[in-house]
């Protein structure tokens, strides 16, 4: 935390009139879960611009959609036009690949070059506030991690997880942008694995299997954050001044086996040498990554310390177990609907 935000570091603001009008907010990656839901949350507080290849279904009509391909070499000029014309004050950057593909080039184009173009446009348009979505996976799953990773911990990523490596690169770019442009409030939010009644991604697919493959002899501590708590943090970051990086996690940790058994699923213990043959691991299923890129996250500790985030955005309403249970019960309900 820097000197910029002592007035609002404590206690949620009492009235909606209190925060300074956030002006126009632009969200990249409107089609992602977080983008769409964040747009819905921000619409009552001011005009929202969506930037994506094409818009999602069922958006509130007040969200104004601009079709922009961040990977095109001329994306920055198009972006500057939009940002300057609509006098955008806040940009929330969520256009990242959620399902890593085998096409490493394309993933890198979108995640890293997309960010380069966006940051260039932000600098040219002189926006006030930038919020970037990251993940706690950027700390890397390492044997020598402390039990609770603080935001200041070096981002070591994982050499065999190209999607995570891309996000580490993005964080470096954003950090450089923040030091070069002190006039812009730059917030980086690092959620851990997100679960909830409606959120889906490869990690959730992995955790939801009836037989969940885990590494024989390991039972890592995991933390999960509920989708609503995650969205809440993004909303606060988009509407208030919170410079710096924040872990967006829930209190409490659970061993992987307790999560799986608590959901009534089975644990399938797989010797590490056989992991290569399993298609169940999300990084294996779709990308050319070596399986360590995912299964080291099921072997070593990479639990993040959420204190800083709790102080800035308020304590989450779900802890790890409750977040997981809300996912499990929603899945059970869906079976009967």
């Amino acid at each position: 935390m820097s000197a910029a935000d002592p007035p609002e570091s404590e206690s949620p603001r009492p009235t909606p009139a209190d925060p300074p009008p956030s002006g126009v907010t632009a969200i990249t990656g409107l089609r992602t879960f977080l983008g769409r839901r964040l747009a819905e949350r921000l619409v009552p507080h001011g005009p929202v611009l969506g930037l994506d290849l094409h818009g999602p279904q069922g958006l509130p009509p007040s969200v104004e959609l601009h079709e922009i391909d961040l990977t095109r070499p001329d994306a920055a000029t198009g972006l500057v036009d939009v940002l300057a014309k609509r006098d955008v004050q806040t940009v929330v950057h969520l256009a990242f690949r959620r399902r890593p593909t085998a096409d490493l080039e394309a993933d890198h184009e979108l995640d890293v070059l997309g960010t380069v173009h966006l940051l260039g446009a932000c600098a040219a348009a002189g926006i006030r506030r930038l919020v970037v979505g990251s993940t706690t996976m950027v700390y890397g799953a390492r044997a020598d991690n402390p039990n609770h990773l603080r935001e200041s911990h070096p981002l070591r990523g994982h050499p065999h997880a190209h999607a995570v490596q891309n996000r580490v690169e993005v964080e470096e770019l954003v950090a450089r942008f923040a030091t070069e442009r002190p006039g812009t409030v730059v917030t980086v939010l690092r959620p851990c694995w997100i679960v909830g009644p409606t959120y889906r991604d490869p990690i959730v697919d992995y955790l939801a299997r009836p037989w969940v493959p885990v590494l024989l002899g390991y039972d890592p501590l995991l933390q999960l954050v509920h989708e609503d708590d995650c969205l809440h943090a993004f909303e606060r970051a988009a509407r208030e001044q919170h410079p710096g990086a924040f872990n967006v996690v829930a209190p409490g940790v659970l061993p992987l086996s307790a999560l799986i058994r608590g959901a009534g699923q089975r644990v399938l213990q797989v010797p590490p040498a056989w992991i290569h043959r399993l298609r169940a691991f999300p990084s294996q299923a779709q990308s050319g990554d070596r399986p360590e890129g995912f299964y080291d996250y099921l072997r070593y500790l990479w639990v993040a310390d959420g204190e800083k985030g709790f102080r800035a955005f308020g304590p989450p309403s779900y802890d790890t177990r409750e977040a997981w249970m809300s996912f499990v019960s929603a899945r059970r309900m869906r079976r009967y609907l």
Binding site: N147, H148, L221, V253, P255, S257, A258, L259, G262, V303
Partner: peptide, 15 residues
């Protein structure tokens, strides 16, 4: 069976 393990652990994994 094993499912009696509630698996409630503290923040360092102590059960």
């Amino acid at each position: 069976g094993m499912s009696e393990q509630t698996g409630e652990v503290d923040d360092f994994g102590f059960d």
